[in-house]
Design a protein around this nucleic acid. Structure first.
Lengths: 143, 143
DNA sequence: CAAGTAGAAGAGTAAAAACTCCTTTATTAC
DNA sequence: GTAATAAAGGAGTTTTTACTCTTCTACTTG
């Protein structure tokens, strides 16, 4: 559905969101441990997310990654878009470049409905929405 | 959503289905042209689909690939399952191995709904369902 | 302002997915 | 039964994605 890079990105962002609720910055090492990902790899991904304005960072001691209030309102769709682009939301299910209502692949109509569903779901899922359930240990970011 | 291999597979199968309605066998070359795919690559994919019992083949002159009546009833889900496995239908949206109702990732519930939707759609889409619209040129398998 | 911490940047490696080529085997038509 | 045809099989190569390593730069604290 989404790339592995994107899966890591989402999990990392959810963790950063959780920590940012208490105004805590988190380092790459902590994040990597929390989401069970290769440390240098998630570092690269975060770098990219910073460049794209989805997360904030501070260097030096007491530095790390964090979200501001605008950050909590970012959605999964925003992250997917930043990492994988919009092909999940708008691409053809059978890989055709020109697939559209005018020139549809056989399953065009069915896929339009499904993709709309996916997009709505991901736009509705905001980074700030999961802090409590993560805090309570009801939801998991690894294994 | 699905691998490129899987996209080719589905397009090829839809084309074979269309031709099989008139009891015509089609060769790799014809298929490759019809769905605009690399010829040796689709050959490999078809080989695999034959092994998995999703399409029939005949060697020698007048040979090629074709479907019997059971074949027309196969669904897109069957093809996706054969090529990509069931991770699209049952895997975790964030890539967690142990994600389940007991130990859910933050977006588990949302993904369950979406995946059910995708699965139902693909199970409902049968290879035999698209022959007429393809014949009429209302639907396309390339570009 | 020195020392240490932590992210940024760039270049590189490993693994997986996509794609190719060549040889063999089965089938049909003459 | 020979020649032509078409799929099967196996062993590559290329490209993309996943992942690593090393060096540099910025910042904070004592």
């Amino acid at each position: 559905m989404v790339s592995k890079t994107c899966e890591y990105a989402i999990r990392a962002m959810l963790f950063v969101a959780q920590k940012s609720k208490t105004a805590t910055k988190v380092g790459v090492k902590q994040i990597a441990k929390a989401i069970d990902s290769p440390e240098p790899f998630i570092a690269k991904i975060l770098q990219d997310l910073v460049k794209k304005g989805l997360v904030l960072s501070a260097k030096g001691p007491t530095g790390g990654f964090y979200l501001d209030n605008a950050g909590f309102k970012k959605s999964l769709a925003d992250i997917v878009n930043a990492i994988d682009g919009d092909k999940l939301f708008t691409g053809c299910g059978l890989g055709l470049k020109s697939c559209s209502a005018k020139m549809p692949c056989p399953v065009h109509d069915e896929f339009v409905v499904v993709r709309k569903h996916i997009k709505a779901m991901m736009q509705n899922a905001k980074l700030g929405d999961y802090n409590t359930s993560l805090e309570l240990g009801e939801k998991y970011l690894k294994r």
